[in-house]
Design a protein around this nucleic acid. Structure first.
Length: 555
RNA sequence: GCGCCCGUAGCUCAGCUGGAUAGAGCAUCUGGCUUCGAACCAGAGGGUCGGGGGUUCGAAUCCCUCCGGGCGUGCCA
């Protein structure tokens, strides 16, 4: 089913063609005709400023171009009326029958209403969060988690085959440090010597994990396993990873974030993908040795500086190298048509490097989309807290979930552009949670449910022509806009227009509720209004589904 | 120094592929519950869109420059 804006766009294109073939409009190439929702109701249901942009090339005043377009619009089943407003806007009013059909269609399509097939079942991967498994996911990553999960929902709704993936860095320096920090704690608790690593992990989380491992592995004071530091390292490493990853999973699930795949960095070595990557780089002469390290000539592509892929001190691979191999896996082995990586803004130096990696692997760069999420400051009583896992000063997602509800957190994050830094006032979010916009939208939904609950007669034959107040018309206008909002979110890969739409439609619903009695003595009118209420509920449901926010029937 | 992001109402933020009167939530003030849920509604106040230049019929939006804040800047991830 085509979106209304697209339908109108085609009608206008045809009208211009008509005028051009009659030689009353000059025969130039017509750009994409953008049809927009006007800001003000008095400007119709949809509008276009195409005449203004054509004016110069056509050497005609926009008002005149609009007149000519209007006069040459073919008969159609959508547009009731066209208004031309200075300085040359075309404002369109939709036919009643078209609006009625829309409502019938919503009721029929239910969960699918608003979806589309722009993705054509193409394989798309969304990789997000991917925090080192060295502790709980802290609040700084919650934003990326929520945005990633919502974007995935949108992509799915737009017809993509989506794989949500978490990349587990289980092969690098940080894991090593983490495990050695745990071992230090374990040995210490039995009064044994084990050198604490420099820049290691400390704090209550580390101690808790260590203690958990002691009881899990039943380590005792005179345990012989403690004599072989090499093998105890591997034992502890595995337990530490399992424990940490399971906790991360649990926290994310409670945040409404779930994954299709948990990808282990170490598996890239097991499957020899890293070797393959190295071969390609060597084959293309993109590798050299310097100062004992191995370098990748990324400067040949997009970066100013080359990048180390093998360290000089211990010969270990850098994070960048395994990430390069990881992307080889994504594109050349698993063959995703498109990949979206969501990074924290502090990783933005990684963007160019990764792009250069793709070039080296001869992968089309347009297939990779990297979203940088700006950081979140968590404010607590005037103090802006700095959180760091290594220092042990953790404010985890779990802590956040314990004080603020999931819906509130999600809505709060989704309601902003990822380009903007965000200040999250912890005190305020708890205190004002009942005044959070998400509850406003949910309340509208609950009210609709409450009405529908008390209906005990058949209303599906109701005559929609009876919907004639400004409040009802506005709601229908909103419903018509939903598919458009979804597509916009997809194109821009953003979520804030969805939450904005939620607030907008909720506001119009509250006004409607206030002014239009649904269940009344006028049975025919009641039936029509119930159908409107039902279609609004369906759209709100679909919207909440995308946001992964609850659509409560009662509150 | 260089690179990326941001600067819009008292606060938190939308709007930025140029378009009509710059919006929302919170906060403040005034009014509204015997009728489907007042977690609501109606109304009011509140703006040099960081400053300055430029492009354009038209700039919060594009370009230049300056100021302010954040993040990053070859062997952590």
């Amino acid at each position: 089913m085509m979106r209304t804006s697209t339908e109108i766009s085609k009608i206008i294109k045809k009208a211009i063609d008509n005028a051009q073939s009659k030689n009353i409009l000059s025969n130039i190439d017509i750009p994409e005709i953008i049809i927009e929702k006007p800001k003000v109701e008095s400007f119709g249901n949809w509008s276009s400023s195409i005449s203004l942009s054509l004016s110069k090339q056509m050497k005609k005043p926009p008002m005149l171009i609009s007149e000519l377009i209007k006069d040459n619009i073919d008969k159609n089943e959508i547009i009731e009326k066209v208004e031309i407003v200075k300085p040359g806007f075309l404002n369109f009013y939709l036919k009643k029958e078209f609006k009625n059909k829309l409502i019938e269609r919503i009721i029929k399509e239910k969960n699918n209403f608003g979806s589309n097939n722009l993705g054509q079942r193409k394989k798309i991967q969304v990789e997000f969060v991917s925090v080192n498994p060295t502790g709980p996911v802290h609040v700084g990553h919650a934003r990326g988690a929520v945005v990633g999960s919502c974007l995935s929902n949108i992509l799915e709704f737009c017809g993509f085959e989506v794989t949500k993936e978490y990349y587990i860095n289980d092969a690098g320096t940080q894991i090593e440090l983490f495990v050695r920090s745990i071992l230090h704690h374990i040995y210490s608790s039995f009064n044994l010597e084990y050198d604490a690593p420099e820049k290691g992990y400390v704090g209550s989380h580390l101690e808790n994990t260590a203690n958990e491992i002691i009881s899990l592995l039943k380590i005792t004071a005179n345990d012989s396993r403690l004599e072989d530091q090499e093998s105890i390292f591997n034992l502890v490493r595995k337990s530490a990873l399992d424990i940490t990853i399971n906790n991360i999973k649990k926290d994310l699930i409670d945040l409404g974030v779930n994954y299709d795949k948990w990808f282990y960095e170490s598996s890239l070595f097991d499957t020899k993908t890293t070797d393959k990557a190295m071969e390609i780089l060597k084959k293309n002469d993109l590798i050299y040795e310097l100062d004992g390290a191995t370098w990748f000539k990324s400067s040949k592509f997009h970066t100013e500086q080359d990048v180390v892929i093998k360290r000089s001190n211990d010969g270990g691979h850098t994070y960048f190298f395994t990430d390069l191999a990881y992307h080889l896996d994504k594109f050349l082995i698993r063959k995703f048509d498109k990949v979206i990586n969501i990074f924290g803004a502090d990783h933005h130096s990684h963007v160019d490097r990764l792009k250069s990696a793709l070039s080296a692997l001869e992968i089309d760069q347009n297939k990779l989309n990297i979203l940088l999420i700006q950081i979140v400051h968590f404010k607590n009583q005037e103090k802006v807290e700095k959180f760091s896992k290594r220092s042990g000063n953790i404010y985890s997602i779990r802590d956040l979930l314990d004080t603020v509800g999931t819906d509130s957190i999600r809505f709060n994050f989704l309601n902003r552009s990822v380009d903007s830094q965000q200040e999250f006032d912890l005190e305020l979010s708890v205190k004002e949670s009942s005044e959070n916009p998400v509850y406003y939208a949910q309340y509208a939904h609950a009210r609709l449910c409450s009405i529908l609950d008390s209906v005990d007669f058949d209303y599906l034959e109701g005559n929609l022509d009876l919907l004639d107040t400004e409040y009802e018309k506005k709601l229908i206008d909103d419903l018509d806009f939903f598919s458009e909002v979804v597509v916009n979110s997809f194109h821009k890969l953003q979520t804030q227009n969805l939450t904005k739409y939620a607030i907008d439609i909720a506001k119009d619903l509250q006004k409607f509720y206030e002014n239009c009695r649904v269940l009344s003595d006028d049975l025919e009118l009641s039936k029509a209004r119930i159908k409107l209420v039902l279609s609004c509920k369906i759209v709100l449901n679909n919207l909440f589904e995308l946001l992964n926010v609850k659509a409560p029937e009662r509150m």
